[in-house]
Every structure is written in C-alpha cells, then in structure tokens.
Write a protein that binds this DNA or RNA. Sequence first.
DNA 1: TCGTAATCGAGACGGTACGTCCTGTCTTATC
DNA 2: GATAAGACAGGACGTACCGTCTCGATTACGA
Lengths: 230, 230, 230, 230
Amino acid sequence: MAPTTRQPAEHQDPPAADAPASPAARGKGRPRSAAADQAILDATREALAELGWGGLTMGDVAQRAGVAKTTLYRRWPSKSELVVDAIASLFDQLECADRGSLQADIEAVVARFAELLTLPETQAALLALFAEGSRDPQLRRRIRERIVQPQKVLVELGRANAQARGEMDPDRDPAAADEEIGIIFDTIAGTVEHRLLVSGEPVTPEWIRRFTTLLLGPFPGLLHRPAAGA
Amino acid sequence: MAPTTRQPAEHQDPPAADAPASPAARGKGRPRSAAADQAILDATREALAELGWGGLTMGDVAQRAGVAKTTLYRRWPSKSELVVDAIASLFDQLECADRGSLQADIEAVVARFAELLTLPETQAALLALFAEGSRDPQLRRRIRERIVQPQKVLVELGRANAQARGEMDPDRDPAAADEEIGIIFDTIAGTVEHRLLVSGEPVTPEWIRRFTTLLLGPFPGLLHRPAAGA
Amino acid sequence: MAPTTRQPAEHQDPPAADAPASPAARGKGRPRSAAADQAILDATREALAELGWGGLTMGDVAQRAGVAKTTLYRRWPSKSELVVDAIASLFDQLECADRGSLQADIEAVVARFAELLTLPETQAALLALFAEGSRDPQLRRRIRERIVQPQKVLVELGRANAQARGEMDPDRDPAAADEEIGIIFDTIAGTVEHRLLVSGEPVTPEWIRRFTTLLLGPFPGLLHRPAAGA
Amino acid sequence: MAPTTRQPAEHQDPPAADAPASPAARGKGRPRSAAADQAILDATREALAELGWGGLTMGDVAQRAGVAKTTLYRRWPSKSELVVDAIASLFDQLECADRGSLQADIEAVVARFAELLTLPETQAALLALFAEGSRDPQLRRRIRERIVQPQKVLVELGRANAQARGEMDPDRDPAAADEEIGIIFDTIAGTVEHRLLVSGEPVTPEWIRRFTTLLLGPFPGLLHRPAAGA
DNA sequence: TCGTAATCGAGACGGTACGTCCTGTCTTATC
DNA sequence: GATAAGACAGGACGTACCGTCTCGATTACGA
C-alpha cells in the first residue's frame, strides 16, 4: 500500500535543452511541453524584474506563463530552484574575448559582471538566492553549478590568456594556482556584488579601472614581473 | 470605523539604550517595558540561528520572548527592521586595536569580519537583509547605518592608524581618500561575504594572509613606499 | 518543543446562541464575532440553495459572508459540519400544535417535513449530509442531534397528545414505546425523504392523506381483510 | 485546436453484457476490452467499500483496475455514472420467491433490501448517488432505471402474488393501483434506508416483523381501536 | 485618590500564498 | 481505433503567516 517503487519523475528538472537523452529512456506518456519550460522561465524573469523576490509568487508565474501551477511544480520543487534556473540562463552566455592584456581582460570581466548585476531581475534575485542557499546545501550546490561557476570560468580563462601571453609565470603548482584563482574570483565577484547590491553605488569605468589596479598589485607569483624581483 | 484621534506613537523605535529622552516628552501612560525590547532581540537572534531567515516568524519571536505580537509591532514595523536591530547589536561591538602594521591591522579586520559571518544568526540574516534592502530604500538606509557603517569605520580606523605610523602618504585630496576607503571596504567586506556565504568555503588564517597580501599590492597613493624596490 | 498543553480553542463550535457561559471562563483575547457566525450560516444556506452541495465551496461561503477562510475554519472543521449547523437552524423551529386527532397531527407533521424538504437548501444538503455521515460517526452523531432529533420530537409529541386524548392505550412498557416511536419515525421521515428526494415526486395533501391512513391501520383497499377481528 | 472530424463513440456506455451488438456496427479499430469493463466495475466497488464515496477517485479506480484513465472515461462520463453501474449490478440480482403470504413476502423483501444496504459499498454510494441525482436529472433517470426500478419490481411482484392468492381485492382502477404501489414502495425503501443509513441502527428480524405488521394494518398497541377488536 | 492614558497578554480578524490533490482532456507511442 | 502512460489546465483544499483589531487587565503619572 505504501508507495515503494512509485516515483514517476516528479520534480524532475527539465533537461538542459541539449541533453538528447537515450532514446530508449524516453518516457511512455505524453512528453513534457518544452514550450512550457521556456514560458515559465521567461515569466519568472519578468515577474522578478517587476515584483522583486518577495513579490514573486508561484501562482503568479504560472498565470503569466499560461500554465497550471501543477506544471510548474512538476519541474521545480520550489521558488528558489525555479529562480536559479531562470537567472542561470542570464549567466551562461558569459564570454570573454582576449583583449590583449591582463588588466584589460579583468576590466572587461568586471564590466560584464556589473552589467549582469544591474538587470532588475538579477538585482531582485541574486542576494535572495544566496541567502536561501546558506540554509540549503542542495540549493547552494545548484547555485554554484549554474550561476557561480560560469562566472568563475571567465576568471580562469583570463588567467590562461595571460599565461599564454607570457604575462604570468607558468604554474609551478596546479593546486596553488587553483587557490589563487579562488581568491581572485571571490574578490572580483564579491566586491562587485557588494558595491552594487549592498552599498548600492554604481560601477563606473573609472571605478573598474581603480579596482582592477588594486587587484593587480604585486600578487606574489601571479604576475611574471622579472624587474620587480631583480 | 477609521481610528479618529488615536495614534499614540506607534512604530516608534526603542531608544538606543542610552538616549535619556527629554523627561517632559515622556508620555503619560504606562511606560514601555525595557525588558521586552531585550527579550525580543534575543529571541530574534535565537530564532534566526535556529530556523533561518525564512523560518523566522513574528509570532514565533513573540512567543519566544514571552510577549504579545502587538508589543512587537509597536516597536518594529516589520520583520526586516527587527532583524536589522537584532543583528546590528552584533556589529556594534566591533573594534580594532592598532597592531603595529597595516598588514596586521587588515588581517585583524578580516578575521573579525569572518568571525561575525560565521555565527549562525548572521549567516541566516545578512544576505537576506541585503536582499530585502535592495527593494526598500528606507530599509537599505537603516542597514547601512546599523550594520555596514560600523564595519566601514574599522577600515577607516586602520587607514588612520597607518597614516599615523607613516606607512601611507598623507591625504592630498579628502574626496579621493573617501573613494579609496570605499573601494577597499567593498573589497574586504564583499570578498569575505562571498567566500563564506556564497562559495561556502572557510576563511582560514592562511587565506586571510594571502588575501591581505593581494590587497596591499601597490595601490597608487595608498601606500607610502618611497623605496618600493629597495 | 512539542505542543503539549497548547490547544487554543481551535475548531470550537460557536455557542448555541443561548448558553451564557460562565463569566469567569470568558477567554482572554478578542472575543469571536457573533455577527460572523450568523453571516457564515446565512451565506452557507444561500450558497447551498444556489449551487448545491457539490458546488458549495468553503472559499465561496467565506467570500459571501465577508469573512476570511480562517474565520470559517476556526469554527467549523469541515464543510459537512458547517452545513449541519446551517441546515439545523431550519429544523429547530419545528413545532406541532395539537390538531385534535392523531390522523390530523400526523398529517401536519408529514406536511411540515415535506415543506422543509422542498426548500432548495435542504434538497441540496440533506442526502449529501447523510451520505457523509455514513462514514463519519462523529458527524453522524451531530446530524442526529441537530437535525434528526428535532424531527423525532414531533412524533413523540404527537404520540403524547394522542395518549392525552385517549386515542391510544397507555404505555405498558416504556422501552417498547420508545421502539415504537423509532419505527414510526423512521417510517415517516424515510418515506417522505424517499418520495421527495429519491423518487422525486411531490408530496400532495392527497398523498399525505393516503400515507397517513396506511400508517394508521387498514389501508383501504390494500388489504382484503373480510374478518379483521376474527 | 478544436477536434474537427474525430469523435469515435466517446462516452458510449458498455453494452449491458447481453446485447451482442450488430456485427456490422463493430468499428474498424481495436475492439474495446470486455475484461476492462468488469475490472473497472469490480475496482469501483472495492474502492467504494474501502474509501467511501468521498475517497473514491477516478485515478485510483483506474489504477486498481490496471487500466488507463482514458479507458475509464471512454466508457463512463463521470464518477457518478460509473458508480451507478457498479452499484446497479448488486441490485439486479434481486428476486423474490412466493413465500405464501403477503406478510412473509414483504418481510423477505425488507430483509433483502436491508442486506444490500449493509454492504459497505452500498452504504458508501447509495445516499451519495441520490444526493448527486437531486441536481442532475440525467443521472436521476439513470439511477431510477438501474437501481430504484429493480427494487420496485419486487414490490409489484409481491402485490401480484398476493392478488393471485386472493389476499387482496382485485384492482378496480389500475392508476390507483400504481399509486398504491408507489406509496408502499416509498415507504418500504425509505424506511429501511432511513433506519440503516440515517439512524444508523440495525435491521433485525424482530424489527422487520414489527415494521411489516405496521405496514399491513393495526400496529399492536399503537392504536386504541376498541371497535377493531370487537 | 482618583482618572486618564498608554501599555501589556491574548487571540480573533481579513487577507494572501502556499503546496497538494483531483478532475476531465490532451498527446504520445504501442498494440 | 483502442490502449497504457502520463502531462496538461483548472480549481478547491486546508494550513500558515501577515499585520491589524479588539478585548480585559496593568501600570504609571497628573489632577
């Protein structure tokens, strides 16, 4: 009588829009509407920008998306998870062309971050998501995968470019390199977030230049500066 | 049906525990219980640590404090304002003794921040408050006054100490100095918050040392380094 | 932590509008609105007549009554209990004057029953309530107390009148008398209900006369009893 | 979006298990599973007995029957219609052998009714069906045909037997006879239902005897009829 | 010493969103 | 064309908090 083997794919996230899924594993019933997925995420971003995190309602999102609440809950177990995915789509278009110098690259990254954090939907959602994540490890992992990691990749990419250009010493120790990346990334992301979302002050090109300069001080080993040590 | 003449000082914040208030202005009726204020703030911190921001309920706080909801709402207009005050009391004990060098002072400040952000009540509340604040300018101002500013003071203090010790150039332009402080502060606070609350990784003494070193790179004009290469 | 002694009078039925309640026992908080009670019961009857049992919604009743759903659930734990009380008020005005003969009294009772069962709210509710009651002993008891018993009293009254008039033998055995009342009552109530609500045919004065005659003895023409006394 | 040409015999009741259907009329596609019909009706009765009317779910019935909801809705347009058919099968086995006297025949009929109304599935369904029927004439007709009529036939049969035995006057007026049957039937059915389902008391042989006696004439002790016994 | 007035605990109040459940329809692929 | 599977729109459910209100009961101060 107790549901032992039941578990008919409730709360199963929509596929990442690329995974083809093994053709045999294709479920038997009516397939989930891909249009609904998109409509829901769009509606979520729209509502977020309009009403903020606190004003965001599952029922309202469903209504905007022209979808029943059931359909929404079938895919996302909670507001937080839904918003992670809705916001994530803004972050996975991040890219960073090689601009010729580490300073220029970092400035571009910072500018890109700032641009994203200025969107009303991001403003509304980001800190709230982080706050929720501090209680829910599952959610925190998801945030890290879908939102934080894509940002971090930029920093890693910038570093790789700098090395390729010979601006930096080649890595002596990959583990230490990882940790350096971590510090740099926390610093860039954290500072921009704090500036925009907590202090509430704008990120101007001038500010970016000064912050980047601060960052590029003689971080031991980060920069290959033959003259500095000589 | 509408209240006619009543309006006896609703939502009036509790005095900052020091202002004696002009004795004439003291109302006629029964004075507010000072014990209640403290019990409420304590209960708020306790509930925050236990249940997190999302689980925090005005009714629950009232019950824990042994107080009626009315009493609570008479003093704080909303959950956010209440939590600001509850958390603020953790931040206004911040202080920073002169440790003899700028590096040591900054390390101490970072360590102090990290220590505060590790408390469960702070973890639960800080980002949520910032998130709320992004929609409510009134609240944001309050957060800035009660929580952000006391932290910033530490940085300003550290800078003053460094100048007094001759580690830094005297300020040529007070406005530029303010902006420098701003950048430094956003960087310190933002990075620590991001590290602890978003990345979810610990702030160890080693990490502090490396981060501080990164920070103390040749920020133009911050450091008085007459012989950088010497 | 577990709620041991809590139990703040949730789902406590509204008083029967007459019980004065011991003055000491008067609760401490804001007293329940008596107007709400009445508005809810009125709204229930109205909605019942309009939408039928199946169309009756707690939310709709609340809205019609100008009352929050909470208020409704504070007093009645379920739709069934609410409807019992709403319908009961129709049944507790039942009375039966002495019309001079048993036949006349019974005819009056039957007519009164039929009249009540013709009201749209009763039509909608009665069978549904009985159906619900067949699963829920608690509810069944309540139905019996509030709806069935007031009807039964009529029959008992009629019998007492008949005895007072000398139309009937005085009771030899009170227990047997009780059982007779039971049979008679089940017959009167059941038959009228079945006629009106199941067969869906009207209860005319002619039908009442014939049914009463059947009840009171040799139904003319039904039985061929050449020697009834033999 | 609207279905254009489709309409392949939706909601067409299953044949009455005896009509072979003209072989030409058999559709082209896969024939309906006859086993499914039976499984569904069995599952319905089972679920009714277990969960009651309110707990009965189309989805649950389908699952118990090992059948898709589609299959269920293809045959019965709604829960009520399904239950009518499921319950009807219990009533169409009614029969009444001639027991030699009107009293004995009626007692047998009453006992048979009571027996049926004691089954948990009938308890759960009967009044609920009647209640539903009071709003839906279509359903009411169906209930009358499948459930009420088979019961009524018993009474008619008993009457015919009694006439054949000479216990009753031959009918002078067929219309009046019909009406008499109607009254008697409403009385028998209604009383038994009320006794069992509303009053919730058992129908014992003793009760049956007393009720039948009441029905058939001078209820002992109820009426003081000095002339009747003289 | 009283009355006035604002406080207190308690809990009912109108609302709003929640997340679940069921209905009856639909869209698949399979038989 | 029937079938099993299950997604779909819609709507009611009963619960939980919100922030306000209305009680009776306390305190203080000023008349």
